[in-house]
Computed example of a mutant assay.
Amino acid sequence: MGAHEMQPDPARDDDGSAAPEGIVVGVDGSDHGQCALVWAAREAERRRRPLHIVTAYSVPIFAASGLDGGYATVDDSVIREGAEAILKQAMAKVSGYDIDVDASVENGDASGVLLEMSETAELLVFGTRGRGGFVGRLLGSVSSALPAHAKCPTVTVPLICADRLGETTEDKHIKAEQAKSGHQPVENVVVVGVDGSEQARVAVLEAATQAERLGAPLRVICAVPQYSGSLAWVPAPMDRDALFADIRVQLDAGSAWLQSHFPKLAIETKLVDGSPVEVLVEASRHVELIVVGTRGRGGFAGMLLGSTSDGILHHAKGPVLVVPDREDKRLADRASFGPMLGAA
């Protein structure tokens, strides 16, 4: 069965509200958008969820030359026809996947359009550094704006991983980077970054679910930077051995808690000395997926989440899943498994 019209999904969430409406992917005709499209189609097939392909555009307005001081607009129908051609091409590209799929052209700022869709979507997917052509700035700045504000998890797919998705690109910068790094095998592993905050625990739960979908082990990484701004005033060198020992106890307790909710999942934890951004960006070269949370509050290892997740998004060499802060019933029993940040 190939791609066909998306059918309504009657599924409901535990609270009785309508379940999220599948996976939304933003395209703009660029190579970056093509990579995001392929990743999203594969994920829709894995999750057995419908895929919605969207492109957005705004009609540009130019100041008219001459003395009249007026304004001139570009014909909306011309731009819309171009956007529809991009969607037709995208629909053809995913026709071989066993998924329900539809597509739409939206008039408006791309960030605003996708942000609104995030309120009902299960997942938003988009590429990085889109061309920003006549269909507007769908990608590029959108990949920075959406993860921080979206209501659902988001996945950014960088063009550098085109080869692992079976795609090609003529982007000279990407081709040079691919040639420099050479072919690197990708482990079927999901990596999640943690910092001891509640937001990180939410990300860990999503990462574990994704690892199960991929039939992959989960690697939980806590990277401890040498110093953070909040510790700069400390007059004596910090006892890093004691700090690492304390974090290790919390990581082990967190691992036991996670295993209780995912008893069949292979879970490993790694405590490393280094910058969270550098550690996770390097890991992104070799694994299927990196997972981070948003709005972390520092935790026991400096600010992994928040501004640091932006750094990971800008430099990652593979797909990055960003999980928004939200309530989860499974967080309630974490304290019963041992020490955790902020516990008495």
Rank of each mutant, 00 (worst) to 15 (best):
P217A: 04
V191M: 01
L205G: 03
P225N: 11
A316L: 04
T308D: 05
L243A: 10
L123W: 10
D100Q: 14
S181Y: 11
V292I: 10
G299W: 09
L280E: 05
E43A: 09
C152H: 09
V234S: 12
A343T: 01
Q199L: 03
G2H: 12
A242T: 07
K270A: 13
A56R: 11
E288S: 15
F300S: 05
M117T: 01
D310V: 06
V191T: 08
V287L: 04
R295P: 06
S230N: 13
L115C: 04
D246W: 04
P339I: 02
E167S: 05
G182W: 08
S58T: 15
D171F: 09
L289R: 00
S141G: 14
G132C: 10
D28E: 10
D31R: 02
L243E: 14
V25E: 02
G33T: 08
D68G: 13
A90M: 09
D102V: 07
A103N: 07
V24H: 08
A145G: 02
V101R: 12
K317M: 02
L165G: 07
S255F: 04
S58N: 14
K180L: 14
A344R: 12
D9R: 15
V24C: 08
E43C: 12
P185T: 00
G127A: 11
T308S: 15
G274M: 03
K175R: 15
T168P: 11
D109T: 08
P263D: 08
A283E: 14
K172G: 03
G296F: 07
Q184M: 11
R326H: 15
G66D: 09
A332Y: 07
D239R: 08
D100S: 13
L305R: 03
L124R: 06
Q89G: 07
Q7Y: 05
D75W: 09
E116L: 10
K88W: 04
A145M: 09
T169F: 05
A41E: 00
V234R: 11
V25N: 02
C152G: 09
L214S: 05
L243W: 15
Y97E: 00
E5Q: 11
L87H: 08
S111P: 00
L218E: 00
Q259E: 08
V190G: 01
E206W: 04
V287M: 07
K151H: 14
F62M: 14
G338M: 06
D100W: 10
P10M: 11
T308N: 12
P217Y: 10
A103H: 10
S77C: 09
A19F: 14
Y71F: 15
T73M: 14
D9M: 11
Q199M: 06
R131I: 14
G33F: 04
D325Q: 11
S30Q: 08
D102L: 05
M1A: 14
R129M: 12
L251Q: 06
